[in-house]
Amino acid sequence: MKLHLSPAPHVHSPQTTRALMLNVLVALIPCAIAGVYLFGFSAILLMLVSVLSAVAGEAIIQKILGQKSRINDMSAAVTGLILALNLSPRTPWWVAMAGSLFAVIVVKGLFGGLGDNFLNPALAARAFLLVCWPRYLTTWAAPLAADAVAGATPLANPAGYTLGQLFLGNIPGSIGEVCKPAILLGLVYLLFTKTITWQIPVYMTAFTGVFCALMGGGFVESMLSGGVLFAAVFMATDYVTCPMSTKGQIVYAAGIGLIIALIRKFGLYPEGVTFAILLMNVATPIIDRFTKRRVYGYEDNKKKEAKANG
């Protein structure tokens, strides 16, 4: 007999997955619009390339592996869009394409598709691109400017921007992460539709501020610079790769905050959000193990024993 057991209880059927993913797509619209307003045509191009290649890549890998096509669940489109919003507007289009393909094929497809990946695909793809072609990923453009103007991000030049600029997004940075009101709008929508709960975004942002402040940064500035808020709302909350219990989520959020602060202060890379969330994604199965409610753990062991015996 073959039991069908799924590790996370969240994704019940393609229909609900599709509904959740549509909610995320809707919540991303304000960020996308803000990105296009601030950075112009190149932002649209990147988003299109990224989404299309993610969907095409998912269709191809599922065809090759002989699985039922699941591109209708929209998860590939969400991955592609989130990846594009995480890139600098001056990234070449083929870099975005390579990232999308890496996300849907290596990080997700080979592990069995949505629900079986242990890293957030968009984040893993961003880390992949950052390590592969650092030059393309860290060439920033000034917003609302002619093409050729380069700018330093607030992380590289903390004194160069006011809090108001940091909040409204009139700063160089990734397409989707700069405009905080748009992200907050998306957060409100996701909370309103019960797509996510408030714990991870709030705890993660707060812990980041606290740990950065402890290491000599500004409390509010460190929360508003870089991709902290965008990642806290759209990527750290990925059902598949975050802990299930509230206690686990607090540990997870604290870990992310601490690692972000460490990387920003001591690390080679200017922004630690990507790596911090990936590292805590890796630790999630362990966190779950120690913070799951007792009853569940007990049942889980029973099931495993039954499986091993029969």
Partner: peptide
């Protein structure tokens, strides 16, 4: 443009697995 990651340990693991 060469992919720097492939020359690093992480890329080694991924290429070997593939």
């Amino acid at each position: 443009t060469p992919m720097t990651l492939v020359a690093l340990p992480a890329g080694g693991f991924i290429v070997l697995g593939l």
